[in-house]
């Protein structure tokens, strides 16, 4: 792992740069206009992969937190922390792009609808997670890990609560998953390339951020050892 990371980061960075530029080109110059939504469907190519990444990173954060609670190995915690921070970033991007799309497609910036509500609650949980990590001080690792586990368990509950509330009232208006099967070949290729690019982007950010957090922790540990040994001045 130590030998792979140094050259994996630039390679991934290059791939992501090419991928983002390439998908932009494909989105605006190659893919045809969609039948019902016309031009504003273009945001779909980045908005949806972004949500895939968000749910992946939340899942990673939850699993790593559970691993940390079980094994007490701080390396799990480094991964969880990086994943949690990225969840806030990707969540913010998703909510903003979603709002823009919503304004264009439905005429509203926001709707209290199944996926929007679920994502918002999930995002709020992750913001809480980052706040705890940032402001709770020493010993917040365990608290944050607990919050992540509770947050991940909460996702299906929120989803079903909103879904059932919707079912009792009216049909959900969010674009459905079967949209993908109605895409033309050019659209599908662009979408798949975009998914790949976003996951490469996520992997890149995870590698860099986990590394930074790990180094941060090691410096802190070394400092504490130095203080204990009397080598460093407090």
């Amino acid at each position: 792992m130590k030998r792979i990371v140094p050259w994996l980061v630039p390679v991934l960075a290059l791939a992501v740069a090419v991928g983002l530029a390439g998908t932009l080109y494909l989105i605006f110059y190659v893919t045809p206009l969609e039948r019902t939504l016309y031009f504003n469907q273009k945001i779909f190519y980045w908005h949806v992969p972004n949500w895939f990444v968000l749910f992946t990173t939340v899942f990673v954060c939850g699993v790593a937190s559970a691993g940390y609670l079980k094994k007490r190995d701080p390396r799990w915690d480094d991964v969880a922390r990086a994943a949690g921070e990225l969840a806030v970033v990707f969540g913010a991007i998703g909510l903003v792009t979603g709002s823009i799309w919503g304004k264009a497609a439905w005429g509203h910036w926001w709707k209290w609808e199944l996926r929007l509500t679920t994502s918002l609650i999930l995002w709020l949980t992750m913001v809480g997670y980052v706040l705890v990590r940032r402001f709770a001080g020493a010993g917040s690792e365990r608290l944050a890990a607990g919050l992540a586990v509770f947050g991940v368990v909460n996702v299906p509950l929120v989803y079903f609560a909103v879904k059932l509330a919707d079912a009792l009232q009216q049909e959900s208006a969010h674009p459905k998953a079967q949209v993908v099967s109605e895409l033309t070949d050019a659209m599908k290729t662009t979408f798949q390339l975009s998914i790949l690019t976003f996951f490469a982007f996520y992997a890149l950010l995870m590698l860099v951020r986990t590394g930074a957090i790990r180094d941060d922790r090691r410096v802190r540990e070394l400092r504490e050892r130095g203080l204990d040994a009397g080598i460093l001045e407090p």
């Binding site: 609650i121 709020l124 949980t125 809480g128 997670y129 706040l131 705890v132 608290l143 919050l147 509770f150 947050g151 909460n154 509950l157 929120v158 079903f160 609560a161």
Partner: peptide, 10 residues
């Protein structure tokens, strides 16, 4: 409240 309320939403 910051950590509790999102979990209490359902």
């Amino acid at each position: 409240p910051v950590v509790l309320y999102p979990i209490l939403v359902p």
